[in-house]
């Protein structure tokens, strides 16, 4: 270990975002289904949301001045890491309840882990973000864990 992770950086583990509440609409489901090349009428008609519809539903919407020059919004949940080049990460999603037009869903994101590993060409930093999505009854609808790697 090269000890890239200071105590101050690790103290960010457990940080939680403000909950975001969004409305699921038939039109948004239809647009998502068309754009992904779906062939299933229930999605193309917007009767029910396909898996991964929560990705656009909770994509960050920020003002133009908050985008970087390459058009990316900065994830405010994350601290500044000593490595910045992002490598491919992974996603784990649990689908617990179906999502329909008219549903209000609330997502809360938590930075659940930061750790370091030795890579072939130097140290790597891994971090994990958990997103819990609940309905207005407080029932868990979708749980997503994202793992990202920085080099």
């Amino acid at each position: 270990m090269s000890g890239l992770l200071s105590d101050a950086l690790l103290a960010n583990i457990g940080r939680t975002s403000e909950p975001r509440r969004e409305l699921v609409t038939r039109r948004d489901i239809r647009k998502y289904a068309v754009a992904t090349g779906s062939r299933l009428p229930k999605y193309l008609n917007g009767d029910v949301a396909p898996p991964m519809f929560h990705v656009p539903l909770f994509w960050d919407v920020v003002e133009l001045s908050e985008l970087t020059p390459d058009g990316v919004s900065i994830d405010k949940l994350l601290p500044k890491f000593p490595l910045e080049r992002a490598m491919a990460g992974g996603l784990e999603i649990e689908y617990l309840r179906p999502v329909h037009p008219g549903d209000w869903l609330t997502a809360t994101r938590t930075l659940t882990n930061i750790y370091e590993k030795a890579g072939r060409s130097g140290p790597l930093i891994f971090y994990e973000v958990l997103m819990d999505i609940v309905n207005d009854e407080g029932e868990l609808v979708i749980r997503e864990k994202t793992t990202r790697i920085l080099r």
């Binding site: 647009k31 754009a35 992904t36 090349g37 960050d60 390459d70 990316v72």
Partner: peptide
Amino acid sequence: QLMLYNAVLWNGHRI
């Protein structure tokens, strides 16, 4: 298709 997908996401990443 790629433009529509990123528009649905609201993803402005130039790449």
